[in-house]
Amino acid sequence: SKTSNTIRVFLPNKQRTVVNVRNGMSLHDCLMKALKVRG
């Protein structure tokens, strides 16, 4: 089974995003990807 960790990230202006960290990806990469999608 694939394991994925879901991390809630609290952003300024009362924004919130959820990042799924996959195996083999660093938290930083996942964060940058999530913020790019939002931006």
Rank of each mutant, 00 (worst) to 15 (best):
T6A: 08
V21E: 01
N23H: 05
N20K: 13
I7F: 04
F10P: 07
H28N: 09
G24S: 11
N20Y: 13
C30F: 09
A34P: 08
T6L: 01
R38Q: 07
H28R: 10
L35V: 04
K2N: 10
K33I: 03
K14S: 07
V9G: 01
S1L: 08
S4I: 09
N13I: 10
K2M: 10
R8P: 05
L11M: 14
L31M: 12
M32R: 02
H28Q: 14
R38S: 01
N13T: 15
N23D: 13
L35P: 00
T6M: 08
R38P: 02
A34V: 04
M32I: 06
R16H: 10
T17R: 07
N5H: 12
V18I: 11
V21I: 12
S4C: 10
M32A: 02
F10L: 09
R38L: 01
V18F: 03
V19G: 02
V9K: 07
D29N: 11
N13K: 05
I7L: 13
S1R: 12
D29A: 05
V37G: 04
V18A: 13
N13C: 02
S4T: 12
R22N: 12
R8S: 08
V9T: 15
M32K: 08
K14N: 14
L27K: 02
I7D: 07
R16G: 03
R22H: 12
G39D: 14
S4V: 07
T17F: 07
L27Q: 00
Q15E: 15
N5T: 11
G24V: 15
N23Y: 13
N13Y: 05
V37A: 09
H28S: 07
V21L: 09
M25T: 13
R22L: 14
H28L: 08
V19I: 11
K36Q: 09
L11P: 00
K33D: 02
K2V: 03
K33L: 07
G24R: 03
C30S: 10
S4D: 12
K36R: 09
V9E: 01
Q15P: 00
V19F: 13
T17S: 08
R22G: 11
Q15L: 05
V18E: 02
D29E: 03
K14I: 07
P12M: 07
L35Q: 01
N5D: 10
H28C: 04
V9A: 12
T17I: 00
K14M: 09
N13D: 09
N23K: 05
L11R: 01
A34G: 04
S26T: 14
F10Y: 04
R8H: 07
F10T: 07
Q15H: 02
S1I: 04
F10S: 12
K14E: 05
L11Q: 00
S4R: 11
F10I: 04
L27M: 14
R22D: 04
V37E: 02
N23I: 09
S1A: 07
L31V: 03
T6P: 08
M32T: 12
T3I: 08
V19E: 07
K14T: 05
D29H: 14
R16L: 04
T17A: 09
I7V: 08
V21A: 13
K36M: 15
G39S: 13
N5K: 12
P12L: 01
R38H: 01
P12T: 04
H28P: 03
N5V: 15
C30R: 04
T6R: 14
M25E: 02
Q15K: 02
V37M: 12
K33N: 08
R8C: 14
G39R: 12
K2Q: 15
K36N: 15
S1P: 10
M25R: 08
P12A: 06
K33T: 02
R38C: 00
R8L: 14
S26N: 11
T3S: 08
V19T: 15
R38G: 01
R16C: 10
F10H: 15
L31A: 07
V18D: 03
T6V: 15
S1G: 12
R22C: 11
N20D: 09
S26R: 10
M32S: 07
V21G: 13
V21F: 07
D29G: 13
T3P: 13
N13G: 02
K36S: 07
L27V: 15
S1C: 11
P12S: 01
I7T: 05
R22S: 07
L31T: 07
L31P: 00
M25I: 06
N5G: 07
L31R: 01
N23C: 15
R38Y: 07
Q15R: 01
L27P: 00
N5Y: 09
A34E: 01
V19L: 13
K33M: 07
R8G: 02
V37W: 12
D29R: 07
P12R: 00
H28D: 11
P12Q: 03
V21M: 05
I7P: 02
V18L: 03
S26G: 10
M25V: 11
G39V: 11
K33R: 11
S26H: 07
A34S: 05
K2E: 10
I7M: 03
S26C: 13
C30I: 12
A34T: 05
V18G: 03
G39A: 09
L27R: 00
T17P: 00
K36I: 10
C30G: 05
M32V: 09
S4N: 08
H28Y: 11
V9L: 02
L11V: 15
K2T: 04
R22P: 14
G39C: 02
K36E: 08
F10C: 13
S26D: 01
K14Q: 03
T17N: 01
N5S: 15
K2R: 09
I7S: 00
V19A: 10
V18T: 15
N5I: 09
K2G: 07
K14W: 07
M32L: 13
S1T: 15
R16S: 05
R16P: 00
L31Q: 00
L35A: 07
N20I: 11
V9M: 03
C30W: 00
V37L: 05
S1N: 14
K36D: 12
S4G: 10
C30Y: 08
N20E: 07
S1H: 14
S26I: 14
G39E: 04
D29V: 09
K14R: 11
V19D: 00
G24A: 04
R22F: 02
N23T: 07
T6K: 08
K33Q: 15
S1Q: 13
G24D: 05
N20S: 08
N13S: 11
N23S: 10
K33E: 01
L35M: 05
N20H: 14
K36T: 06
T3A: 15
V21S: 12
D29Y: 14
G24C: 14
L35R: 00
F10V: 03
M25K: 10
I7N: 00
G24Y: 07
M25L: 04
T6S: 11
K33G: 03
N13H: 03
T3N: 04
N20T: 04
